[in-house]
């Protein structure tokens, strides 16, 4: 069953087209990695899924509900879609536990005690239960990102979106975040991940989407993408050879 359906989506900033007739589907349990050069529209595409980026043409469905339709209750839809950002975006004026419980209490109307229990369970899961009373500014980047993942999981999302979750991290912190994501993927979480971490893609993705200049150039199985080079588009080949050089 499709959790996300992106149908023929186009978006313009004035005259400049950032998304051009993008179509793809993410099924339950899929781990889809979206890659491509910077400015190719990957982040914009993933942000159309929870309505953070409006688009002018096409349709995006999450669990069958249209994101762009007038009558759609966007806050309710977003509560079901977890999102992790490049710059973590924890709320700096709230403690870690408050970050974890805020939306559970205010959006899902859970009891504070229930929300706290859930938050602590997920904080433990990302290995940070000893940091509960701290503030985001007191944590390292990798720790903040793990809290951000726990915060999104607190909402019991049907799908998790990751927008370059490791790009702003120091190299030695990348793996602690990727480990959490690999664990999630292995548990069967449906995920759409914008990343340049090809190791992650090889390890757990079952599909890879390659974008260039606002278009989905390739949408293929992992084996297809990393396997036979001759089956890939010229642009994807160039991109892969550049990022896999080192």
């Amino acid at each position: 069953m499709a959790v996300i359906e992106i149908r023929d989506v186009s978006k313009w900033y004035g005259d400049f087209q950032v998304l051009s007739r993008c179509t793809t589907t993410v099924d339950k349990g899929d781990v889809v990695v979206v890659c491509g050069p910077s400015g190719s529209g990957k982040s914009t595409l993933i942000k159309t899924v929870n309505g953070l980026e409006p688009f002018q043409r096409g349709e995006v469905l999450v669990n069958g509900v249209s994101v762009g339709a007038r009558g759609t209750n966007l806050p309710r839809l977003r509560a079901k879609v977890g999102m992790v950002f490049q710059h973590f975006e924890l709320f700096p004026h709230l403690s870690i536990t408050e970050n974890l419980t805020l939306a559970q209490v205010k959006v899902l109307r859970r009891k504070p005690s229930e929300a706290l229990a859930k938050g602590m369970m997920l904080l433990d899961r990302v290995g940070l239960s000893d940091q509960a009373v701290k503030y985001p500014g007191e944590l390292s980047g990798g720790q903040q990102q793990r809290v951000a993942i726990a915060r999104a999981l607190c909402m019991d999302p049907v799908v998790m979106l990751f927008d370059e979750p490791t790009s702003a991290l120091d190299p030695e912190m990348v793996s602690e975040v990727l480990d959490v994501m690999v664990g999630l993927a292995r548990e069967g979480m449906t995920m759409m991940v914008v990343t340049h971490e090809m190791g992650f893609a090889r390890q757990v993705a079952n599909r890879v989407i390659f974008m260039d200049q606002g278009r989905i150039v390739e949408d293929t199985s992992k084996e297809g993408f990393f396997g036979a080079p001759e089956s890939r588009s010229e642009r994807a080949r160039q991109f892969l050879s550049k990022i896999l050089q080192h």
């Binding site: 977003r78 710059h87 924890l90 939306a103 959006v107 909402m155």
Partner: peptide, 20 residues
Amino acid sequence: GQLHSAYALGLSYAQAMRLV
């Protein structure tokens, strides 16, 4: 990004402003 992450958690505009 702060507003985006508040929205992404399902907060409404009023909640995002008041709480975040």
